[in-house]
């Protein structure tokens, strides 16, 4: 087993793609850094926190991007975002599947406007790929999780593969606590944070395919057939979810409502036992 959580962005790429097949576009040697960080005396990175390129997966060519959570929490700035957008647009040109190895707190505040617009451009580019039937797969298993605008972008993609250690949300728990008070969200309650944002809750809602924290498990879960987008069906599904669970106090209540026995044990189960426990009980 090789932990996805512990790996760097480039180690994840190397572990996922066929050995030696990765070629990076606009690599660190090109020295394209963020001028906005320098202006604020913040350390820059030669890849601005994201590696993009191409490679093969079991011989099939594909494009790949990996955010580096260790650099500014994988936050999206002007250059970082433009690299992902460029990759997605290239995927449309080449009709090549895209793997997005995301780990991001959202928009980089030091260049907040550029980051927000960049996320919007990423969203538009993903939607263009969906419309063309070119698959985009998100893999989320990093420590930071995926939040903010990248959390929205994630839900635009064909598929999301996620480990139980990873998190997916819009506002981070700390931000909600700071803004709305600890009664709304106690960000120090780690069990609560994972019940809300963690891979298991997202899997129960059908938003994610759950895998163990192992690069090989992520690799094995990749499916490249495009998922047809039926907005009317999705609208009905999300409406039913809102009606049934929108007022639920805690994810535990939702899991119990779904008929899952002793829901309190779910966070303790390993991935296989968890998947057996929720079989046929998805929201």
């Amino acid at each position: 087993m090789t932990s996805w959580l512990e790996a760097t962005a480039r180690e994840r790429i190397a572990g996922l793609l066929d050995p030696g097949s990765f070629t990076e576009f606009v690599p660190p040697e090109a020295r394209i850094t963020s001028p906005h960080l320098a202006q604020l005396n913040q350390p820059a990175a030669f890849d601005d926190g994201v590696a993009v390129g191409r490679g093969t997966l079991e011989g099939a060519p594909m494009l790949i991007a990996a955010q580096e959570g260790a650099f500014m929490g994988g936050a999206v700035g002007e250059v970082h975002g433009a690299k992902i957008t460029g990759l997605l647009e290239r995927a449309l040109d080449e009709r090549a599947p895209v793997l997005l190895l995301l780990e991001s707190g959202g928009v980089r505040l030091h260049e907040a406007n550029a980051g927000l617009i960049a996320v919007s451009e990423i969203m538009r580019a993903i939607l263009a790929l969906r419309g063309a039937g070119v698959p985009v797969i998100v893999l989320n298993g990093g420590r930071v999780g995926v939040f903010g605008g990248m959390g929205i972008a994630t839900c635009l993609c064909d598929r999301l593969i996620m480990s139980e250690d990873a998190r997916l949300g819009l506002s981070g728990p700390e931000v909600i606590e700071t803004t709305m008070g600890v009664e709304e969200f106690d960000a120090a309650d780690r069990a609560l944070v994972w019940r809300v944002t963690g891979g298991k809750n997202r899997a129960i809602f059908g938003e994610a395919v759950l895998v163990p924290d192992d690069i090989a498990a992520f690799r094995a879960a990749i499916r490249l057939d495009p998922v047809p987008l039926d907005v009317e069906a999705e609208h009905a599904l999300l409406g039913a979810r809102l009606d049934r669970f929108g007022a639920a106090e805690d994810a535990l209540d939702i899991w119990a409502d779904l008929g899952i026995e002793t829901p309190a044990r779910l966070p303790l189960l390993d991935t296989d036992d968890f998947l057996s426990a929720i079989e046929g009980k998805l929201a």
Partner: peptide, 28 residues
Amino acid sequence: QKMSRRDETICLNAYIAHLAKCLDHARG
């Protein structure tokens, strides 16, 4: 976005992404 534990629990980002998909559907 609404800052809400309940909304986050049912995956608020999926709802906002859905709005984006519907607008793009209309554009198409």
